[in-house]
Design a protein around this nucleic acid. Structure first.
Lengths: 232, 232
DNA sequence: CAAAGGCATCAAGGTTTTGTCAAGACGCTT
DNA sequence: AAGCGTCTTGACAAAACCTTGATGCCTTTG
C-alpha cells in the first residue's frame, strides 16, 4: 500500500489525541482530528479516511448520533473509544454500526491490533483501493488528484473531481442520483438532483468531446449515471 | 434469511457451552460443539458455519494454533473467547486472524452484539442475492444493471429493465399479467394489461431476433409471460 | 364461416426526465 | 473593495419515455 493510511479521530480531549498521534508514527498515518461531532462528520466526508476513531462523550452531540449520521452514507470502519464501560452502551454502539468498542483506559497495543482487524475487514469490503483508474483514454490519479484525457490534464473543481472519482471507483456500475449525492454532498442533499445534473454537465463539457455520443459518462435515464469501463 | 445460523463453538468447559446455548434459542441457531482444537477444526470444515467461537485454553492444542490452522483455508468470522486478559494475548490472537476478542467473564448481551457485528461483516463479503442471471445467450447483471444478448449490450428503459428482471428472478415460471403489473407498476395498475403488452413488445424487439420464434420470452396466452430458462 | 377475444405492432401525443444557459450568492485572495 | 473561481438555483429547451388508440393477425367458439 503506497498510499498513507488516513485516520479521522473524533475526540474532545487533546491529551488522548496527542497520545494516539504519538503512538503511531506520522510517516505511516495521516491524522485528521476533530473536537466535535459536526466537525468530525465533515472531516470524514472530506478526507475519505480508512478508519474513524470515535469518542462517545463529545461536547456538541452524542457520539452515538455521530455514528448513526455516518452510517447513513458511509461504510468506513468505526472504532468506538470511550470511558463508558457499561454493557448497554457497548451494545447500542455496536448495533448502531460500530465495528469495535474499546474501553478507556485502553492498552495502545490492543487498540492497534483492533485497528488492524478493522482495516483487514475493510480491505475485503472495498477491494478497489487502486491508486489510479484508467480506461479508454481517461486516467484518474487518485494520489495526485489529477485527471487526464488522452494524456492532457483536465482541471476539475472539488465537486467535479469527487463526482468523477465516485463513478470511477464503481466503474461500470450504475450509481443512482441518490447514491452520488450521498457520497459527494452527504445524506442531507439526497434530493438535489438538479444540482447533480448541472455538475455532471460541467464534467462532461470538460472531458467529453462529442456531446451526442459520450465516451465516458453514460446517463441511465430514470436511474443515474455510469462510467463506461472499456472501449467497445 | 431462511437458513438457520450455524455456529461452531470450540471450548472445553461444558458449563460455558451450555450457557451460550441457553442464551440463544435453538430455533434461531444451530450449534456445533467441540471440546478440542482438532475436533473443532474438523467441525468447521464439515459444517461450514457462519461463525466460530473459540476458547484459547484448550486441552490438546493452543487456541492460537487452531486459529492459524483455520485461517489457512477459511475466512469464517472467529470470535476469541477467553479468560486470558493480557494485552499480549489479545494482540497475538487478533493478528492471527481473530475478528474479535472477548474476555471472560463476559456479558452475554455484549457477546451477542459482537456476534452481530461479525455477521454483518461477513454478510458484506458474501451478499446473498444473486448478482446475475444467465441462460442461453441472455445475461442480466443485476449489480451493474446491464443486459447482454450474445455478449452485446442491450439498453433498456427503466420499465423494460424491471419487467425483464422480474421475469428473470422467476425464470421458468409463468408470471401473470396481474403479477407483473403489481411488481413493476404497483398494485394500482393491475388492470393496465395493454400497457404491459406494449412494453413486452419493446423488450422483445430489443432482445429477440426472430419474432416468430422467441428465444427468451414466451407468451402464455390468457395467463401471462414466462422467461425460457434453458436451451432445449 | 363469422364473430369474439387475446395478442402484437405502429404511431401519435402527452408526460417525465435530462441538459444547457445564465444569473446570483458565497468565499477566498488580492 | 474588487476580482476570481465555484456552487446553487431558476428558466427553458431537448430528449427519452410512457400511455393510449387504431389496426390487423391468429385462435377459439358458436
Amino acid at each position: 500500500m503506497s498510499e498513507p493510511l488516513r485516520i479521522v479521530i473524533i475526540e474532545d480531549e487533546a491529551a488522548i489525541r496527542r497520545f494516539l498521534r504519538a503512538s503511531m508514527g506520522p510517516d505511516e498515518v495521516e491524522w485528521f482530528e476533530a473536537e466535535s461531532g459536526g466537525e468530525g462528520t465533515r472531516l470524514v466526508a472530506h478526507k475519505n479516511p480508512h478508519l474513524v476513531l470515535l469518542d462517545l462523550g463529545l461536547p456538541d452531540q452524542d457520539g452515538l448520533e455521530v455514528l448513526r449520521d455516518l452510517r447513513e452514507w458511509s461504510q468506513v470502519p468505526v472504532i468506538v473509544l470511550t470511558a463508558r464501560g457499561k454493557e448497554r452502551d457497548k451494545v447500542l454502539a455496536l448495533d448502531a454500526g460500530a465495528d469495535d468498542y474499546v474501553t478507556k483506559p485502553f492498552s495502545i497495543a490492543e487498540l492497534l491490533a483492533r485497528i488492524r482487524v478493522a482495516l483487514r475487514h475493510a480491505a475485503r469490503v472495498i477491494p478497489n483501493t487502486e491508486a489510479a483508474y484508467e480506461a479508454s483514454g481517461l486516467r484518474i490519479d487518485f494520489e495526485a488528484r489529477q485527471v487526464f484525457v488522452d494524456g492532457e490534464e483536465i482541471r476539475l473543481t472539488p465537486i467535479e473531481y469527487r463526482l468523477l472519482s465516485e463513478l470511477a471507483r464503481h466503474a461500470g456500475k450504475v450509481l443512482t442520483h441518490r447514491q452520488l449525492l450521498r457520497a459527494v454532498w452527504g445524506p442531507a442533499y439526497e434530493d438535489s438532483t438538479h444540482t447533480l445534473r448541472v455538475h455532471m454537465g460541467a464534467i462532461r463539457s470538460k472531458i467529453e468531446s462529442d456531446a451526442g455520443y459520450p465516451r465516458f459518462i453514460r446517463t441511465e435515464t430514470g436511474v443515474g449515471y455510469r462510467l463506461i469501463p472499456e472501449e467497445l
